[in-house]
């Protein structure tokens, strides 16, 4: 509980500092609006912001679901076949060496201005961390378990299901938690490159019209959404790593 009090306190201090700087330095509102103005703008634009948040949130959630599923399937495939690992792992590493941001314009070209180019960005950005975290867990099954399974004449696919996958769930959980942090970044980049809806689009639009207060309102909404998503995913994955 004291953690929450500390978080509220530090946020309060930061907001007070922000407002003080804006008031004392007498900064114009299009350079740095104060938190009070941002809050007012947020309230007066709440329906517009909500609408765009919904768009971004659906991109992020769909991207997460698809990216995590693909990551899980890939990791299991790679874990069960040495040949697949030898062939696919270099490709995986190479795709990770490409800055995903560079692909955003191409994805928009291929998939259009709608939802799917943003979902694809989110999927691309989270696929690798999920795959590599889970695969890492699957390849690090404690040797004692594997020895035991071998003396029991276990079938490889059953060993995978009953031992290697459960033993790797904590690794998968950390991959998924990482993905929850990355997915909004992917969706926002997609929206910056080309979109007509979403928080990223709203931020760009507000910035272009020198409505810095609206841009801040959209940005803070994105921040709150990302934190809530992080907490939700943390809550949903809390049992994956637990052993009792």
């Amino acid at each position: 509980m004291s953690r929450w009090i500390a978080a509220v306190l530090s946020t309060g201090v930061a907001l007070a500092l922000w407002q003080t700087i804006v008031t004392v330095a007498d900064l114009p509102r299009f350079i740095l609006p104060g938190p009070i103005l941002v809050a007012e703008t947020w309230w007066s634009h709440r329906w517009i912001i909500a609408e765009h948040t919904l768009v971004t949130a659906s991109e992020v959630v769909l991207g997460l679901l698809i990216g995590i599923s693909l990551g899980i399937v890939t990791a299991i495939q790679l874990a069960s076949s040495r040949a697949a690992r030898v062939v696919v792992q270099p490709i995986l590493v190479f795709t990770q060496a490409l800055p995903v941001f560079a692909l955003a314009p191409i994805l928009t070209l291929w998939l259009g201005f709608g939802l799917w180019s943003k979902i694809a960005m989110a999927v691309l950005i989270i696929y690798f961390p999920v795959t590599s975290a889970f695969l890492d867990g699957l390849m690090r099954t404690p040797q004692g378990y594997l020895d035991l399974a071998r003396t029991m004449q276990g079938h490889p696919m059953r060993i995978l299901w009953h031992i290697r996958i459960p033993a790797a769930l904590p690794s998968l959980a950390s991959g998924v938690r990482l993905a929850a942090v990355y997915a909004p970044i992917g969706a926002i980049i997609g929206e910056w490159v080309g979109a007509s809806r979403g928080l990223g689009y709203l931020m760009l639009l507000a910035n272009g019209r020198a409505k810095t207060d609206l841009m801040f309102a959209a940005m803070l909404t994105l921040g709150v959404f990302s934190i809530l998503l992080h907490l939700l995913v943390g809550y949903l994955t809390r049992n994956l790593g637990k052993t009792d």
Partner: peptide
């Protein structure tokens, strides 16, 4: 053969 080691090797889940 059946095998038993120093580590009990119980699956914690």
């Amino acid at each position: 053969v059946a095998y038993m080691a120093q580590d009990d090797l119980l699956m914690p889940w």
